[in-house]
Design a protein around this nucleic acid. Structure first.
Lengths: 207, 207
DNA sequence: CTGTCCATGGCACTCGGTGTCAAGACGCGC
DNA sequence: GCGCGTCTTGACACCGAGTGCCATGGACAG
């Protein structure tokens, strides 16, 4: 049974190390602050070498940000799977909901991470960079969905950006309120405000 | 005449060094790419020490990003100076226009910088971080202007974010078209799409 | 048992960024 | 003229992030 079909052992070992590294890092960073913790400290806690750390994560920031990294792919998948006839405002609200929901579940861990990110310039920068990528992907998906030309119409990029602005605002509020405000409700309120823009894509011309 | 009223000599010397540093950095970075240029190379070209460089700029990224840094303050000032009765969509369009205009003038230099930023992850990250600050400030200004409670209403942060999304989209388009598309026209088109959201702040309740 | 593959660790190195201190430029009062 | 604070600069040492390189050791195939 050398190469078993369920891609295992090596893969699971790898996942194990990654998880332990993430756990150790998040714990230390949340307690002492981003700048006050060195990578050597993290790897000492996790029991691996510094060199190994950087084989799993591209940077110190990545340990934190990658915790939320799957959300980009999740959102794109959700948007792609929404029924074709659905108004953009509804489809995009569900798209953002996927990520908001992921945060709302196991809120304890996520809330600590979000607070850390929003409170640390270096982390915020990396997070926004990721979001910029999501934005491009969502715009692409949206253009395909509506049969628009992403090189001519401003709508796809604007709508994607507006949706992510909503996401940001919800996260910020949720973080500021220490988790007291309901993320789902916040998302609904945000999209209620933004819907008029998201549902009026046809007006654009003259690309 | 020791401390002359026109704040001069020392101040002007300082400005001179900063300008030379910026010039040298922008030239090298635009030609060789961000990662291929070291700070030592920049300071050698400018004729100062590395230590001095970091007394003028907080980081290597800052040399590039600070080239656009005043725009944040400019925008806030413009928003504060717009007539009180003006609809938010118009006031915010003029606000963004200030920065777009600053880019459109001396387009050669700015275009190179913008292309550099959008094409370099590290620079994009820092740029977006700055923008996040502008967003908070614009939201504050907007809330004051409309008599809203920024802690209760989602509108101020959303509207500020939406406006900056427009700014980003315009910049991106302008950069992608190598300066061919007219920034002012792009801004108008973007705000024409976004106006319905920006002008409907009253609907929000239940903070 | 032997050869191969792969993950890891250790090490040296580059580069960004900072603290510290000594030296020079400038304006000041004497 | 001189000595005096102040401010800027450069030089040096230092830290931490991140990378390239190679040796080791374990897992598996033959």
């Amino acid at each position: 049974m050398t190469t078993r079909p369920d891609l295992s052992l090596a893969q699971r070992k790898r996942q194990l190390v990654a998880d332990e590294l993430t756990r150790a890092a998040l714990d230390l960073l949340a307690r002492k602050g981003f700048d006050a913790v060195t990578v050597d400290e993290i790897v000492a806690t996790a029991g691996v070498s510094k060199r190994t750390f950087f084989r799993y994560f591209a940077s110190k920031e990545d340990v934190v940000v990658q915790f939320l990294a799957d959300m980009g792919a999740d959102m794109r998948r959700e948007l792609a799977s929404r029924p074709a006839g659905e108004p953009p405002s509804v489809a995009l609200r569900h798209t953002v909901w996927v990520s908001v929901d992921a945060c709302a579940n196991n809120a304890d861990r996520t809330l600590r991470v979000v607070r850390l990110i929003l409170g640390t310039p270096a982390l915020l920068a990396r997070f926004l960079e990721r979001q910029a990528q999501w934005r491009g992907e969502l715009a692409e998906e949206l253009a395909a969905r509506l049969g628009l030309d992403p090189a001519a119409d401003l709508y796809p990029r604007l709508a994607a950006g507006v949706s992510l602005t909503a996401f940001d605002t919800v996260l910020q509020r949720w973080s500021d309120s220490e988790g007291a405000e309901d993320p789902a409700a916040l998302t609904d309120r945000a999209f209620a405000l933004l819907a008029p823009v998201l549902d009026a894509p046809q007006r654009e011309q003259r690309g």
